[in-house]
Design a protein around this nucleic acid. Sequence first.
DNA 1: AGACTAAGGAGAACTTAGTGA
DNA 2: TCACTAAGTTCTCCTTAGTCT
Lengths: 105, 105
Amino acid sequence: MGAKSASPQAVFCERLRAARAAAGLSQRELGIRAGLDEFVASARVNRYEQGVHQPDLDTAGRLAKVLDVPLAYLFADDERLAKAILGFARLHRGEKDAVLRDLFP
Amino acid sequence: MGAKSASPQAVFCERLRAARAAAGLSQRELGIRAGLDEFVASARVNRYEQGVHQPDLDTAGRLAKVLDVPLAYLFADDERLAKAILGFARLHRGEKDAVLRDLFP
DNA sequence: AGACTAAGGAGAACTTAGTGA
DNA sequence: TCACTAAGTTCTCCTTAGTCT
């Protein structure tokens, strides 16, 4: 079968959790580093990962920055695309341009 | 200088507008095709493009689907990454795997 | 037709305070 | 320490009803 399409909401939760695990941060620590108040960081990040609440885009952007992933990665609904985004983001400018030339012949 | 970082909010607005223009749809028509009520479609899509309101992820996902772009594209804060996402999404499975092998040697 | 907006009610997120592993 | 949650408040979004080009 092709890519199963989970809801964008569910995808976001999973990517956030995966990226946080990769960064080795607790929910609270991630929130604090993203600029959330230390007393609410734990609850808010937890609600995001559980899919109970959705953060606004600016908060999501700060979380992504702390986790060192492009914001777009958190919304990648396809596994291949998710990997491609991570891989592409780690390239240097020249390498990115080379890949883009490949993709747009 | 490197990529200037507009706010995620502003990026979303621009990408949404660009994708809608590319699809040749009116704000109202886009909303209707994405499943919004015909009487609210115009107002809601307009508010999203102006950055006054943010759609929930499921609505954003339906908009992206109608516009034939990956949801992640609407959040790509870097021009090169945005192009890469669009290009990658248009590849066939085998081609995607080939690109991924390039990105992860 | 298409883009856009104010106002108020409807609904979601944020804060607080706390539990259990 | 870490993950997690209910309740009440706060704040944003959605709907309605329009204007303007």
